[in-house]
Amino acid sequence: MSNMSETRRGKFAASWLPGVLLWIGAMAPGGSDPPLLTSEDFPGLTVKQVERFEGKALYGYIDGGAELVYEYGFTRLAVQHVTAGGEEFTLESYLMRDDLAAIGLFSVSRGGCVSADSLGPFSCRSRYQVLWASSQMFLRLINPAGSAAGERIALELARILHRKIPGGSPVLPAVLGASGLPLEECRYVRGPLGVQNGFDTWSDLFDEAGLLEAYILPGNTDNGAVTVAQAEFADSSGCARFIRRFDQGAAVHRYLWRQSPTRVVAIESVGAENSLRERIEKAVMTKQ
């Protein structure tokens, strides 16, 4: 695939919008082991080392960094060091508790990278790594040298790995699709570390509110920055706490729909964003 097709973010986003009505939590079939590369996968590929981490042993691999992974729901990790085409690569292949956990970890790990369409909607690549989430898997293929050849091979290896993953990826909530904002910017979070890593600007809003999960979609329109979010709380008092803080926020324009005692949809924007607000409201009501 050419760089051109990989970087057409607008096209990528547009391809997501139609038909997004409901959140469908599609569990991945099977897939009890994280996918790995083999010497048959790529000419001259050599597997140098494989390490596996389960349970709390993730602390042994990334120490404090493990907390974020545990917050999402971790099952096991395989780390594979390989060489191919004269380049060295490290594959981190995470099996997460569910597909949302995989997407969530992907969403707060990406940045400064462009979409890699061939790896599905939750993917991105840069000079140094390819990241993607599919089914219950979150994968990171690192090209530590950052060479052009390594970048090319990493994408090929990623595609090979991607074909080994059964099942697909879930669809984002309809209200996000209705926003018209690029969906690849969506952060899915399940706790304070996810918020800190994904959208720290809202850390205070969620602080001690019993957040269970939130989809946070920041973006820009002609009027400036806008954020659309759907959040679910453990109880109604936590939800009310969030609403109160949201009301005290600094943004000029804030809109909020309470879908249930524990769930809200919120918009925060610099401009009035009447059109966006109407689309979101329609999506919220359609869901009802």
Partner: peptide
């Protein structure tokens, strides 16, 4: 029931 909450 979904409630829109005007935030004043």
């Amino acid at each position: 029931m979904i409630t829109r909450v005007p935030l004043s």
